[in-house]
């Protein structure tokens, strides 16, 4: 039985997969369902939700469609989250593999750098980085990755340390492969699965950090994200609290979906291990 089938059999895995599929669908189809710019004015201002069929979730104080923003926000949030997690995992896995394989001084130096990144609050680091370089999509992605690469680095290093003494690595050394070549071609692929398992959780935390950054006005000002919608709603928190509350559900569903999915996934993987 494949891991996927097992995943869909656990209640957590099924619920998480459904939630993530719906989000992915919304993100992919956003330009088709709501072809006009979600930042453009679409109707009367501050329309409450469930009162006008044309704007099921109402409009904000500039008359922008909340539902369109929510759907386009899914696109931006997921894109930033996945991109930041990808950068963090690739950089972290590389650094961890090099540290674990090189050992000695290189390992020591790289791990102290990892330590240094771990004692600085990653959100503060992201904040500082965005503030000095100016907010844009790329900067936000790098800023989030700055605080997220240490987890994969540690994990990859630990995996490498447990793998490097195994037979196929020793064999590669005997036939005279360059250490770096061994690291990249033999060790990295084997160390990758647990690192990838960690990455779904990194996507979730990246989505949250992006939301917090745009909530503080440090996101890319040219795109709609859930965080910026929540921040925008704060201006009319007393009269129209729904404007801040609705986009938050997008975040909750995303993060909950990722956690349920990864919980189901780890159950499925461990179940496969025990039956083999």
């Amino acid at each position: 039985m494949t891991v996927l089938k097992r995943l869909l059999r656990t209640p957590e895995g099924l619920a998480g997969t459904i939630m993530l599929c719906l989000l992915a669908l919304a993100a992919l189809l956003a330009p088709i369902i709501f072809p006009s710019d979600p930042l453009s004015i679409a109707g009367p201002a501050l329309l409450p939700p469930f009162t006008d069929a044309a704007f099921p979730l109402g409009t904000d104080r500039l008359g922008r469609d909340v539902l369109a923003g929510l759907v386009h926000g899914a696109r931006a949030s997921l894109a930033v989250g996945i991109a930041a997690a990808a950068v963090a995992v690739i950089v972290g896995a590389l650094v961890g593999t090099i540290a674990g394989f090189a050992g000695g001084l290189v390992d020591e130096a790289l791990m102290r750098i990892v330590d240094a990144f771990q004692i600085v609050p990653s959100f503060l680091l992201a904040l500082a980085f965005v503030s000095v370089t100016g907010a844009s999509l790329t900067v936000v992605i790098i800023a989030i990755a700055l605080g997220a690469w240490t987890g994969p680095a540690r994990l990859a290093r630990a995996e490498v340390l447990s793998i490097r003494e195994r037979d196929y690595v020793a064999a590669a050394r005997v036939i005279g492969m360059h250490p770096l070549e061994i690291a990249l071609r033999q060790v990295l692929p084997h160390a990758l699965p647990p690192v990838l398992a960690l990455s779904s959780v990194i996507v979730a935390s990246a989505v949250l950090i992006e939301a917090a950054l745009s909530f503080l006005g440090l996101g890319d000002p040219n795109i709609v994200t859930w965080g910026s919608m929540i921040a925008e709603g704060r201006n009319v928190l007393r009269s129209a609290p729904f404007l801040s509350i609705i986009p938050g559900f997008g975040l909750v569903v995303t993060v909950l979906g990722v956690y349920l999915f990864s919980e189901g996934l780890s159950d499925a993987i461990s179940a496969r291990k025990t039956t083999n």
Binding site: S244, G248, V252, V255, L256, Y259
Partner: peptide
């Protein structure tokens, strides 16, 4: 698990809407 998925700043806003506003 549900609580774990709630972003703290949004929870802060919701709490202040309910209990303060």
């Amino acid at each position: 698990l549900a609580l774990y998925a709630v972003p703290s700043f949004w929870l802060g806003l919701v709490l202040s809407i309910v209990f303060a506003v």
